[in-house]
């Protein structure tokens, strides 16, 4: 099966210095690729580059065609990006925000809003919502983007436990339905639950050492690799990996 997104020796810069270098990977339909790494390592920049929102060096192809050659409108029909929460200054309501995401104006946003548990928020301005509610709205907006590729930057950030589980389940279902998903996550257990492939970004690219790694989740999600990646103790407990906080309940 040919890849939807093909990255070959990709390098990405932020603020004049390299954050990602020499990354090669293939993103296929029906697969979830999780991007892991410490703060400031360049995970978000990598997603922006994959979405064509910042420049990239190396070869980045979408459906066999160089991504930079796509017109902005055509690219938006192929790739959806969910990143930072949008500004709230101008009083957009949840319903209006969702309608702006829908590629087809005839789509009934209320059905998606109900599916994503934001139906009760539809008439409220974004500025009146909590960060968690706004994140749920962004996920609902993403659901309205029927694109083959989804790029998500920390989709479970701000969410309570119920909605974190909902989000992870939804991503799994979407991948099973054939969507290619690349997502940045900070929670190792969430990554273990859904990752087919993993991109590790260690943030040491500018220092001329380390860089990125790409491989199957089964090969890279282990305590030794993650402990080194995060410079923090990660231990195996049964079948799962957890952070070792070094404290215990009395």
């Amino acid at each position: 099966m040919s890849a939807l997104l093909e990255l070959e020796q990709i390098a990405v810069e932020r603020g004049g210095s390299a954050v990602i270098s020499d990354l090669s990977c293939s993103i296929h339909a029906g697969e979830i690729t999780v991007v892991l790494g410490p703060n400031g390592a360049g995970k978000s920049s990598l997603l922006l580059a994959m979405a064509g929102l910042i420049p990239v060096t190396g070869r980045l192809e979408l459906n066999g065609k160089i991504l930079e050659t796509y017109a902005r409108a055509e690219l938006s029909r192929q790739v959806a990006w969910q990143g930072s929460l949008p500004p709230t200054e101008f009083g957009l309501t949840v319903k209006q925000r969702l309608a702006l995401a829908a590629a087809d104006p005839a789509i009934d946003v209320e059905i998606t809003a109900t599916e994503m548990d934001v139906a009760a928020l539809l008439s409220r301005p974004l500025g009146e919502l909590s960060s968690g509610e706004r994140q749920r709205v962004e996920l609902a907006a993403l659901m309205l983007r029927d694109t083959p590729v989804w790029l998500l930057d920390e989709p479970t950030a701000h969410l309570d436990l119920k909605h974190q589980i909902h989000c992870i389940t939804m991503l799994k279902q979407q991948a099973e339905a054939g969507r290619a998903i690349v997502t940045v996550l900070h929670d190792i257990q969430q990554a273990m639950a859904i990752a087919d492939f993993v991109i590790l970004v260690d943030g040491k690219c500018a220092e001329g050492q380390g860089g990125t790694a790409y491989g199957e989740a089964a090969d890279l999600l282990n305590s030794a690799t993650l402990s080194e990646l995060f410079d923090a103790p990660v231990v195996e407990q049964g079948d799962v990996l957890i952070a070792d906080y070094g404290v215990t309940r009395e």
Partner: peptide
């Protein structure tokens, strides 16, 4: 203009030049 209310990044991602 409506899409631009979501910020430049979101607007670009939604297909606006």
């Amino acid at each position: 203009l409506d899409v631009l209310l979501l910020g430049e990044r979101h607007a670009e991602a939604l297909g606006i030049d």
